[in-house]
Design a protein around this nucleic acid. Structure first.
Lengths: 208, 208, 208, 208
DNA sequence: TGCTAACCGAGACGGTACGTCCCGTCTTGCG
DNA sequence: CGCAAGACGGGACGTACCGTCTCGGTTAGCA
C-alpha cells in the first residue's frame, strides 16, 4: 500500500517483499513493547531479522515507517448497514475507538501527527494513508442516510463537503480526545450519548 | 504550576527564581525554532544561560519541562460574558484555537499527550496543568447558561458531569483534530458552524 | 603477475581480458585520487565500469588488488650498464626512488606491507610480485661488477647471498625510509652520498 | 607526552588522566590481538572501559591514537656506552629491532606512515613522537665517537647534519625493510654485518 | 544452430564500524 | 549548598563499505 511509488529498476536484485511485511510487523510489535519514543530503528531491524540499511532503503525514517505500520490497522474500518443512521454512526465510532485503543495506535498516532506539524510530506503521507480512509466513511454514511431519507439530499455540494469535514473532525476528534487526553474508555454508553448529540445537531442544522 | 513539591532545605544557597522563567521561556523559543522532536535539554540550557544540571534539578526530563513551558499559554483562556451561550462558546473556541495555532503549542501538545499514553505521572501532570484549566471553562459556561435560562438546570449531577465531559471532548477534540490532523484553519465560519451543531445537539438532548 | 592460477574451465564465457586492465588502471587512479585508506572496492568497480562481483571473482580483496595494480609499476626497473658499479647503483636507486615517489606507490606500498605482517599469503604475493623483481637487480649488479673486476668473485655462495640480502635491505630500506618516513626527496646529491657510503662499506668488507 | 597542547579550560570537570593511559594500553592490546586494519575505535573503548566519545574527545581518529599508543615504546631506546662506536651501533640497532619486532609495532608503524603520506599533520605527529626520538640517538652516537676519536670532528655542520640524516635513513630503513618487507629476523649476525658495512662506509667517506 | 555454462551489470541483502549527537550523571572550582 | 562548565559512560543515529546473493541478460565453445 502506498509505500513508495518509485518504479523499481528493471535490473539488479529485486527488493524482498517478505522483508517489507516483516519490518512492518516488527514495527507494530516494537510499538506495543516499547512505545513510540523508545522505538529504535535498530531494534525494529533486529526484530525483523533484517539489516538497518534495508529499513533505510525503504523508509526515510521512523516517522514514515510507523505511519505505514499503523496505517494497515485502519483498513479494517467498515461501514456495515445497521439499519439506521444512528446505528451506523455508533458502529463506526466503536470500531474507530477499538483501533485507537490498541497500544500500538495509541502511542503512535498522535506522535506522528505532532511530528507532521513541521513536516509537510509526512502530513501528506498521514492524510493519504490514514485520514482519508476514515473520512471516506463519513461520506458513505451520509449517502446511505440520504438514500434512507434520514437526511435531506445535499443541494450545495460545497456546503455538503464542509459539513462532512466538520462531522469528521468532530467525531474523530472527540474519540481521539477522550481516548488519549481524557484517557477514558469510549464505551457503548459514551458512544450512545455522543451519537445523540451529533444527530441532534445535524437535525437542527438541517431544519434551519 | 506544581513544579516539584520537595520542601526546600533551610540551609544552602536558594534556587534562582529567575532561572525558572528563563528556562521556560527558552523552552518555548526552542519549540518554535526546532519543534518538539529536535528540542534538546542541552540546547534549552544554553538558550537560558544555565547549566544542564540546573534543568535536571527542577524537571525530570523533556516531557515535564515542555508541559510546564506550554501550560502557561493556556492561562490566558477566559470566558468573558458575550451575552449568549452561542457567543460564549464561539469566543472560547476561537481562543482555544488561537493558542493551539501557536507553533510551540502545535508541535508540543500532541507530542506530550502521545508520550503520556505510557507514562501515568506525565498524564496526571498534563491533566492538572493543561486539561483541567480548559475543562473548567465548560463548567463555567454551563452555569452561566443555566443562569441565563438558556439551558435547563441539571437535575442529576452525575448526568451533568458526564455531559460536561462529553462536550469538552467534542469541543476540544474537534478543534485539535481540525488544527493538527486536518491541518486546516479554525476560522470564524468553522466555529459558527461547529457551535450551531453543538448547540443543536444540546437542545435536542435536553428536550428528550 | 600470477593473478590466480585457477585452471579455467573449458566451457562457458571466458573472462574479459579488457576488464582486468581496466580494473588495475582504475585502482591506480583511485589510489592517486583517494589514497590507500579511502579507496573502496565499489569505487574501483565504478571507475572501471564493472560490477563489484567482477572484482571479487578475480581478487580476494583490496590488498591483493592493490598489490597487482602497483606491481606493474616496478616492471620498468632496469639495470642499464652505465660503465661502473657506482654509476649502476646510482642509476637504479634513482629509478627506484622515482617509482616510489609516484602518489599511487607512496600511499599503497607500505600499507600493503603493513597488512602483510599478519597475512602470510599476502606477504608471499608482495614478495613474488614486487620484492623479488627488485632484488634480482642487486644480483645482476653484483655479477656485472664481478665481470668488470670491481668486486672480487664471491667464493662462498652462502655469504654472497647474505651480502646481497643485506645490500638489498640497506638500499631499498634507505630509499623507502627517506621517502616515506623522513619525507624528503631522494635527489642526485643524496644518491651520490648514499652510493659512496655503500661502496665504501663493501670495499671495507671485501678487504677483511 | 605531546598529545594535544590544548590548554585545559579552568572550569568544568577535568579530563581523567587514568582514562588516557587505559586507552593507550587498550590500543596496544588491540593491535596485538587484531592488527592495525581490524582495530576499531569501539573495541578500544570497550577494552579501556571507556565511552567512544571519550576517545574522540582526545584523538582525532585511529591514526593519531595509534601513533601515541606506539610512541611510548620508543622511549626505552637508549645509547649506553659500550666502549666503541661499533658496539654502540650494534647495541642500538638491536634495541630498535627488538621494538620493531613487537607485534603492535610491526603492524602499526608502517600503516601510520602509509597514512601519513596524505596527511601532513599526522606526518608531523609521527616525526615529533617517534622519528625525532630515534634520530637523536644518531647525533649522540656521533658525538660520543668524536669524543673517543673514532670519527673526525665534523667541520661543516651542514655536511654533518646531512650525514647524520643519511645514516639515520640507512640504519632505520635497513632494519625496517628487513623486518617488514624481507620478513626476516634482525639477529646478532645480521647486525654485525650491517654495522661493518656502515662503519666501512663511514671510514671511506671520512678518508676522502 | 542451438545448448549450456560461465560470464556480466546492477543492485538489494545481512552485517560492521563509523563519527556524531544527545542523554542523564559526575566532578571540578567559585560564590 | 547552588551554580556554570564540561567530562563522563552509554545508546541511537544515519551513512559508508563490506563481501554475498539474486536477478535478467550476454557470450563464447561444443555438440
Amino acid at each position: 500500500m502506498t509505500m513508495q511509488s518509485r518504479t523499481p529498476s528493471r535490473t539488479g536484485r529485486p527488493r524482498s517483499a517478505e522483508a517489507d511485511e516483516a519490518i512492518l510487523e516488527a514495527t507494530r510489535a516494537a510499538l506495543v513493547d516499547l512505545g513510540w519514543s523508545k522505538l529504535t530503528m535498530g531494534d525494529v531491524a533486529t526484530r525483523a531479522g533484517v539489516a538497518k540499511t534495508t529499513l533505510y532503503r525503504r523508509w526515510a525514517g521512523k516517522n514514515e515507517l510507523v505511519v505505514d505500520a499503523v496505517a494497515v490497522l485502519f483498513d479494517e474500518l467498515e461501514l456495515p448497514d445497521l439499519g439506521s443512521l444512528a446505528a451506523d454512526i455508533e458502529g463506526v465510532v466503536l470500531q474507530f475507538a477499538a483501533i485507537l485503543d490498541r497500544p500500538e495506535t495509541k502511542t503512535a498516532l498522535m506522535a506522528v501527527v505532532a511530528e507532521s506539524t513541521r513536516d509537510a510530506p509526512l502530513r501528506e503521507r498521514i492524510r493519504t494513508s490514514i485520514v482519508d480512509r476514515q473520512k471516506r466513511l463519513v461520506l458513505e454514511g451520509r449517502a446511505r442516510a440520504e438514500r434512507r431519507g434520514e437526511l435531506p439530499v445535499a443541494e450545495d455540494p460545497c456546503v455538503a463537503a464542509a459539513t462532512a469535514d466538520l462531522i469528521f473532525d468532530v467525531a474523530a476528534g472527540a474519540v481521539v480526545h477522550r481516548t488519549l487526553v481524557s484517557a477514558e474508555a469510549v464505551d457503548a454508553e459514551w458512544v450512545r450519548r455522543f451519537t445523540a448529540l451529533l444527530l441532534g445537531g445535524l437535525a437542527a442544522a438541517s431544519s434551519d
